[in-house]
Simulated scan of single mutants.
Amino acid sequence: MDDQVGALREALNRNEVLTDVLAGAAELRLPGWYLTAGCVFQTVWNVVTGRPAAEGILDYDLFYFDASDLSWESEDAVVRAGRARFGDTAVEIRNEARVHLWYEEKFGVPCPPYGSTEAAIDSFPSTTCCIGVRAEPDGRWRVYAPHGLSDAFGLVVRPNPVLAPRHVYETKTARWREQWPDLTVLPWPE
């Protein structure tokens, strides 16, 4: 795993947008934050397949966890602070303590409240997506990857039927296959 984390850091450092977002996220000092999802594993896919590191990445997901205030206004204040720091970079900032308030309306299935940002990452529709990174004040990177990093480096997309419905997985993987045709996409379990 140590070798994989080193390879992950090397790959992510090739994406200048991602490293700027990591630095900016550290400046915001959000509780329990991670840069996660597509910007992480898609940067790896780009590096592995010889593409420009930021190619095809739609946005940069910055998750944090603050259960002390679940109001939209509180999250919006953080989003506005992020906009001031990141400018035109597409950074999606979300308080994962609030997800249960809107998830069912958006995805059609209820979501129990998360207890941490890590719990939110655990529920992504693909295990390959379940990677989060953050820069610690001492310069070290913290990596959260409950399913490891092998699938990301191996271009394998594996379903994670914990929460997200099948159609979410299939919609995402259809787009990913167009952008990264070398992917091996495993089917949703019956």
Rank of each mutant, 00 (worst) to 15 (best):
A119K: 08
I121V: 14
E136P: 10
I131M: 13
P113S: 06
V133W: 00
E105L: 12
A97E: 06
I121T: 11
P110V: 01
A135M: 15
D88S: 13
Y114M: 12
E105N: 10
V99N: 08
D88I: 08
T128L: 06
I131L: 13
I121D: 02
C111R: 08
S123D: 12
T117K: 15
T128D: 00
G115L: 13
E105R: 14
V133G: 07
T128C: 04
C111Q: 13
L101M: 10
C129A: 12
C130W: 11
P125S: 07
D88F: 10
A119G: 07
E118T: 00
H100K: 10
V99T: 12
P125A: 07
H100Q: 07
L101G: 09
G87Y: 02
C111L: 13
E92N: 14
E104H: 02
C130P: 13
R85E: 01
R85Q: 05
E92A: 09
W102A: 02
E136L: 14
N95I: 06
V133S: 02
H100N: 03
R134D: 15
K106H: 10
C111F: 10
F107H: 15
T127I: 10
R134H: 11
D138I: 04
E104C: 00
P113T: 01
K106P: 09
R94Y: 08
V91N: 03
V133Y: 08
G87L: 05
S123G: 12
S126K: 02
G87K: 07
T117S: 15
C129N: 11
I93V: 03
C111G: 08
N95H: 05
V99L: 07
E118D: 05
S116Y: 06
T89H: 12
A119W: 07
D138C: 01
G87T: 04
R85A: 06
E118R: 11
D88T: 13
F86M: 09
R94C: 15
